[in-house]
């Protein structure tokens, strides 16, 4: 295991210990380097989801936490979820149903404040944002999907859109909460490799939670099995 000292990049799970109602849930001590994928496996109830919630900032206050979670040298634990720059892909793609596919990507896409500037400038920026979103869609084989209703997309297409929405938000780490489990076996491999490839390209540390062995193998990184 790599040393903890002064790790300024990567996702550092520093002697994290989770307790709920006095019961010890899990202990983990690991630094996920950029471009590395740590796979955490285990049966349900083993605390996998709690670990993700801890990192993303959604852990209920009934949990007791010791240790620290650091991302690029900055401790996450005191921060609200939106300030952590931790992207998460859930089991379901969760595209916002009232927006089109392209608009979902726009939600992800970060940009400078639009409020200022002239009307013309504003319009130009909006057009630029749209182009970025369209390109992102095209890059995962969804050209021309900008105006589509997310509900009309297949599961694989939705996951791809959700992945691109996430990447456009420029996260500094990626959490995967069994995002492939709902997909057909045929599709699963394809989406999985797309995800890992994109994460690697963006130099992200990735934490994958799964109970699918194939997922773990495809991740090609260290595996921690909480069930053991």
């Amino acid at each position: 295991m790599p040393p903890h000292a002064n790790t300024s990049s990567g996702l550092d799970l520093n002697a994290v210990h989770l307790q709920v109602e006095g019961k010890s849930l899990l202990t983990i001590d690991h630094v996920i380097a950029e471009q590395e994928t740590l796979t955490v496996m285990g049966p349900s109830g083993s605390g996998k989801s709690s670990l993700l919630n801890l990192i993303a900032g959604f852990l209920p206050t009934s949990f007791t936490v010791t240790g620290d979670v650091r991302l690029a040298g900055r401790s996450l634990l005191g921060l609200p979820p939106q300030a952590r720059h931790v992207g998460i892909l859930f089991q379901s793609p969760l595209l916002f149903p009232h927006l089109s596919v392209g608009e979902n990507l726009l939600v992800g896409l970060r940009s400078e404040a639009l409020a200022t500037g002239s009307w013309k400038l504003r319009r130009e920026r909006l057009a630029a944002r749209r182009t970025t979103a369209e390109q992102a869609l095209a890059s995962v084989g969804l050209d021309g999907f900008f105006g589509r209703d997310p509900a009309t997309l297949s599961g694989g297409q939705q996951t791809r859109a959700a992945l691109m929405r996430l990447l456009l938000s420029q996260p500094k780490a990626l959490l995967l909460d069994e995002p492939f489990s709902s997909l057909d076996t045929a599709l699963r491999g394809e989406i999985r490799s797309l995800t890992f490839e994109r994460a690697k390209a963006a130099s992200l540390p990735v934490l994958l939670v799964t109970h699918d062995l194939e997922d773990a193998e495809a991740a090609q990184g260290p595996v921690i099995d909480l069930g053991r």
């Binding site: 939600v107 970060r110 996430l166």
Partner: peptide
């Protein structure tokens, strides 16, 4: 799925208010 959307929006970097009003409430 309002709460799920809310989490998704937060993980995309949105504060609670914009997340809820623009992305959770419509559901």
């Amino acid at each position: 799925r309002c709460e799920d959307y809310l989490r998704t929006a937060q993980s995309l970097g949105y504060g609670r208010f914009k997340a809820f009003i623009c992305l959770g409430l419509p559901d």
